[in-house]
Amino acid sequence: MVKPTDSVVATENEPLKKMAQVRNLNFYYSGKLALKNINLPVYEKKVTALIGPSGCGKTTLLRSFNRMHDLYPGNRYEGEIWLGDENPRNLLQMDPIEVRMQIGMVFQKPNPFPKSIYENIAYGLRVRGINNRAILDEVVERSLRSAALWDEVKDRLKEPGTALSGGQQQRLCIARALATDPAIILFDEPTSALDPIATVSIENLIVELKDQVTILIVTHNMQQAIRISQFTAFMYLGEIVEYNDTMSIFTKPVEQKTADYVSGRFG
């Protein structure tokens, strides 16, 4: 595995802080090994992209971060995922609900709840027992502004979230994830169900959001990884073949497999 070059650090004039670190992670779907010895840093306020062909385990790895696999029987983790920089905690040893309160997720298909726009955003706070109207109002507005949706929906917060267009729904889901001020937001191919214009707006949003939150994104689209991410991990058959800053992965890959994939020779 290749260490990230120092060039990124140098150009941005600030030290990199780790928000999470995966160590020797193996994952089993009912006894079948799906992730093999994964090691991956996730840097604070950066976008880290996971790329690779279908079935390579990138979504499986992403869903390990918020313990989504715990919802289904027969799944097993080995290894560690450390969360935080100063007092890191192994999130595989934590209560899954506590983990999910700190790590948000945006899904492939927009999945607004069958509630009003307002209640969609307030949901994360409400499940934490926060029902104070003033706090909710403030968080809803701040989250919608961060997700570049406020101007479009401020006059119809009471309308159902499902009444929005696909791209708006996805931004609503991003706002919903932002509302609880998570350490990391996981994006699972967030634009694959959207049209090109909505895709551009989501990509722009992710680029803006990286100043306030750490982002880990799975994408099928290599151009998208180049446009929005600072670091990229190329996965193949359940392993990370190569990890580096995004420019290096796409311009001077070390591994032959990576070179073949990013040049479109397979995948």
Binding site: K109, F113, P114, R126, V127
Partner: peptide, 27 residues
């Protein structure tokens, strides 16, 4: 109810009961 809604609720840190009452029942 589609699995995405269920997972969306769990991903927000909701418990099983919260998911059932606040998301699945309305859906």
């Amino acid at each position: 109810v589609p699995v995405q809604l269920r997972e969306g609720s769990y991903a927000m840190g909701a418990t099983r009961l919260q998911t059932a009452i606040k998301v699945l029942m309305p859906a």
